[in-house]
Design a protein around this nucleic acid. Structure first.
Lengths: 343, 343
DNA sequence: TTGTAAGCGTTATCAC
DNA sequence: GTGATAACGCTTACAA
């Protein structure tokens, strides 16, 4: 290294000790707020530290204490706005707890697997927060005993006892469906996908239960469109298909906002007005849907809190003897212009 | 710590050495790919490492080598999609170079200042990549000699000699304006803001130079709206004001996509059709503008590459005796539906 | 080609 | 209350 090598003239604990006329042990005690240091001594040390603008060496400390005070965060897709607020929450909370977040983009399960091994075994991080775990990511169990792992806001099926943060996806979708029914809709469609997220399954169940309870439609499945992703294009295609049924739905519920925007576009192409001819709902309440017209009725997920609470839970797992293993955060149904009454 | 404390039974270099029947020095040589190791010895060591699933302790290594192999990345706003691809680029390249990215959200200059001091002085990171530096962030100079700092894609005025990555904002806006003129527009407006980014100033100059050269309007400033941010709302307000002038502009250029979307909304409210009555352009080409109608003509910034190249430049600053101090990446003007000919 | 040993900057266990 | 000093796990002269 060229620069940074300049660390040569950086003050170390020994320098502070000499400058304050005490031993390194005392300096260490002051730094770490340990008891049994006379007030006058403490003051001397603090002054010496300031004078030398001393900063303790993180590696030395980690080596000695066996903790890195860093957390590995694996993120499937940086460009998905859904994760942005989560990262912000993790980042802010980590800072508060004096932890560093090592945020690493990963696309495949095998890569996450390797990454965890690499970062945790080498003690670059004390544990991990995994964003977007798939239902069958059972390999996570391997690490569960050795390390502190938090999953957010998805979690794998075989790891329910591993700490995780989420909302009650079942209840959210159930409630949304009930709301749509309450304003008169009977033929209600669902746009979903075949990914491996636990949230998808839960939302599906919430929807079908609500529909079946109402008893309006006999074959729920006829009104379910399954895409392969959460995309705008999938939404368009879904709308085209669902809206050309002979008995077309009067409401289309989507498991993502982006899909819902696609559905609205598809409906628009077919000359349908929202919400007069069709009600549409999304899921997530991502930032930029505020720029669309009509504004979208959706389920607001507490993304920033997802992040913040994940970090807190992570910390608690590491340091508290007794700690929660999961947290279910409150969501909020946001009723806006894209849904309306049926006469 | 509860877990992670389990590091007790982790293999260390000494264990590998014993297991392979060699000294720790030899194991270290093998690990680091140093020459002068007999092939047979190397094989023995590699086997022992695998058998014990040995992972070198990062802190010990950092302490000894005086390098953390981590880079601090300060990001003003996680939720701004513009930064997402940059982070992805940094993350991927860092991984390639075996570096960790410590991504920290920061809102104020003073906090960045503190953060740099804290992370670099304590050797948590070997240097920093600063996202979104303001023109007058001259405090950065303090660190320039001691540490490797890269700015991207904005940079402060007094630090032009400090490594940075960007596009030629002047040229991009100049070209865009020329294009708009080439399709017949004479009264061209600009929506800008009073932030402290160097890119804003450059785009402003590019615009005014192009307009003045053409000589269509005498008072360029009359057609410039200055907001306080890059927001959708600012775009709406700008449109309302600009479009109610007695000689209203036939084209409105914006320095961000979001603002341009706002302008389109504002124009829509006033009953104007795009591009028949008004041409609109944005800047950035952020992902989700693809979902808007009409599709937006804009300047595509190479965000992922911004990130990737920043990381490469950072690395090069650290390890290459001779290295570039800046990189100007190619942008691309994307002509879509929001701009059209004037008869 | 390989081994020995010093040292990186802390923390923590003893003495005093 | 305070001070020596032995780790923590690695890299790297220097010796062999």
């Amino acid at each position: 290294m060229n620069k940074g090598m300049t660390g040569i003239n950086k003050a170390k604990i020994e320098d502070v000790a000499r400058n304050a006329g005490v031993s390194v042990a005392t300096v260490s005690r002051v730094m770490n707020g340990l008891p049994n240091v006379r007030e006058a001594t403490k003051k001397k040390v603090l002054e010496a530290m300031k004078e030398l603008s001393y900063a303790p060496n993180a590696s030395a400390r980690s080596l000695r204490t066996q903790e890195s005070r860093a957390v590995l965060v694996t993120i499937p897709d940086f460009t998905n706005p859904f994760y942005s607020h989560i990262l912000a929450g993790i980042g802010d909370c980590a800072r508060e707890l004096d932890y560093s977040a090592l945020i690493v983009p990963v696309e495949s399960e095998t890569r996450i697997d390797k990454l965890i091994k690499e970062f945790l075994d080498s003690k670059k991080a004390d544990g991990a927060i995994l964003l977007g775990s798939k239902v069958n990511d059972d390999w996570i169990k391997k690490y569960e005993e050795k390390y502190c792992i938090v999953q957010c806001p998805e979690f794998s099926d075989g790891t329910k006892n591993i700490p995780h943060i989420s909302i009650d996806n079942y209840k959210a979708m159930y409630e949304m469906t009930k709301y749509i029914q309450s304003i008169g809709h009977k033929r209600i469609a669902l746009v979903i996908n075949d990914n491996q997220f636990v949230s998808t399954n839960m939302r599906y169940k919430g929807f079908t239960d609500a529909v079946n309870e109402a008893g309006y439609i006999y074959d729920v499945e006829k009104y379910i469109y399954r895409g392969t992703d959460y995309s705008f294009e999938t939404g368009i295609v879904a709308a085209r298909q669902l809206l050309s049924m002979k008995e077309r739905p009067t409401a289309i519920l989507c498991i993502s906002d982006i899909m819902a925007l696609g559905v609205m576009r598809g409906a628009d192409e077919m000359g349908l007005k929202i919400p007069k001819d069709l009600s549409v709902t999304g899921f997530d309440d991502i930032d930029f849907i505020g720029m669309f017209h009509p504004s979208l009725t959706t389920v607001k997920q507490p993304c920033y809190e997802f992040g913040w609470e994940s970090m807190k839970l992570f910390y608690s797992c590491l340091y508290d003897e007794k700690h929660e293993t999961e947290a279910c955060l409150p969501y909020k149904i946001k009723i806006r212009e894209s849904t309306g009454k049926i006469d």
